[in-house]
Simulated scan of single mutants.
Amino acid sequence: MGNSSSKGEGGAEGEEGGMDGEEAEITEKKKEEEEMEEELPLGVEEMFESGDPVLDLSYRKFKRLPSRVCGLMHLEKLYVCGNSLRTLPDSITQLQGLRILALDFNKMEDVPSAICQLTNLTRLYLGSNRLMSLPPELKNLQSLRCLWMESNYFQRFPRELYDLPNLKSLQIGDNRLKTLPSDLWRMEALRGLWLYGNRFETFPKVLLRMENLEILDLDRNKISEFPSLKRLPALRLFSYDHNPVDAPPKVADEVLVVGEGAAEFLEEREARKERRRKAAEKEAEELALAGEEPVIHGILKNSSSNSKQAANEAAVTLGDGDVKEEVAKEGEEDAELAVTEYDGAELEYDEEGVEYETEELICEGEGFEYEGEELEYERAQMDYEYEELEDTGRRGGGP
C-alpha cells in the first residue's frame, strides 16, 4: 500500500512537474517574442519616432508586424514588402488614416480581415503572396482605386471585385486564370487591366465590351488570334507580347501596340501618315497656285473675306439639314466660328509624349519603362520604390 501510495504521489508530482515545464516553455517563448520585438532592426526605432506619415519596413525579415506600428495614428502610407508575414494584427484597424498599404512578397494565404476595415485605402498591393481568393468583406474598401495582386494562385477571377465601384487599376498578372466572367463589363470604372502570364488560350470576348479600358496587357498567354480592337474607343496601349501570333490586331491609330510584329506595324503606320501628310500639303499648294481655296471635310479653310457666303457654302457641302442651319447661323454671327482650321494631315498620336498621369492606372515601381518606342517589362523580383506623388506606374513580379 505504502509503495503504491508513494508511486501514485510520485506520478502526480511528475505530472505536475510536466505541466510546470510546459508553462515555463510557453512563458519562455513569450519572453523571446517580446525580446525579439524590442530588438528592432537598425534605424526602425528612429522611423517610429519621426512622425513621418510614410513608414517603409520592407525587407526587414519580420515574421509579424511590430505592435508599435498599430499605434502610429498619423500613418498614411505603410510598406511592409519582402518580409515573412502571414497575417496582420487586428489592431491595425486603428490606422484609419492609411491610404496606401503594400504587402508584396510575404507569405499570406488569406487577405487579413483587418485590412477590410481600413476604409480609406486607395491603393492595396498584395502581389507575390499565396492568395487563391478574396474575402467578401473586401467590399468595405469603397475608396480603393488601385489593386495589385499579381503572382498569386488565383484560378478564377474574384467576383468580389465587382463591389469596388472606384477600382480603376487591376493588376492580376502571373496567376492561373483561363477565362474571365461574362459579366466583367460591370466593372465600368476600370481603366487599366493587366492579365499577362495567365493561361488564356483564346481572347476573352468580354473585353470587347470594356469600352473604358485605356491599358490592356495580355503578354505571355497562349492566344493565337486576336479580334479587331477598334471597338475599344478609349484604348491607348495594348500589349500582346509572347503569344503565338505573328502580327498585331487591328487597332485605332492612337493605340500603341507591343508584341511580335508591332515594331513593323508602327513603322508602316507612321510611314502611311507621312505619305498622307505630304499628299495633303501638295494638294494645298496646287490649289493655292490655282487661286482656289482648299476645301477640307466640306468646310472652307480660308473664308474670312466673305463670312456669310463661306458659311452657307460650307453648310451646302456638308449635306445635313440641321448642320446647314447651324453653320449658316454661325456664319452670320462670326465667320471665325464657322471655319475649321485643319492642316490636312490626320490626327497624330505623339508616342513620346504619352504620360498616364492618373494614379489609378500606373502605379510607380520598377518593371515599367516607357521610352516611346518599346515598352519593356522586367518581372524579376525587385525592391519597389514607391512614388511619394499621387500618380504612379506598373510593377510586375514573378511568383
Rank of each mutant, 00 (worst) to 15 (best):
G396A: 14
S6V: 07
L103M: 02
E355C: 07
K31H: 04
G97P: 01
L138E: 04
R99M: 12
E357V: 15
N83F: 08
E22L: 13
K31S: 06
L124H: 01
Y384W: 11
N106G: 10
L72D: 01
C81V: 08
P135S: 07
Q142F: 00
K250W: 00
R145M: 14
E188R: 11
G21M: 03
Y386P: 04
N306S: 10
V327C: 06
G8D: 06
R276G: 10
E313T: 06
L208W: 08
E355I: 12
R159H: 13
E341Q: 15
K308S: 02
D253I: 02
E292A: 10
Y384V: 14
A338Q: 01
M1N: 00
L161G: 04
Y240V: 13
N306H: 09
E332R: 15
D110S: 12
R191T: 11
I92F: 04
E201G: 03
M1D: 13
D163C: 14
L42Y: 08
C70T: 12
D322E: 11
E351I: 09
Y153S: 15
R145D: 07
L389Y: 08
K7F: 04
L235V: 05
E360F: 03
V69K: 00
M382C: 15
E46H: 02
Y162A: 12
L361R: 08
R60M: 06
R209S: 07
D110A: 05
N129P: 11
K222H: 11
F203V: 02
R277K: 13
E374I: 15
E388Y: 15
V206M: 00
K77H: 13
M73K: 08
Q94F: 10
A262C: 09
T392H: 07
E32K: 13
E369R: 14
Y59N: 07
R64H: 15
Q117E: 14
A335W: 02
A290S: 08
V316W: 06
S128Q: 06
T340I: 11
E376S: 14
T392Q: 08
I223M: 01
E357H: 15
L375S: 03
E214P: 02
Y125K: 09
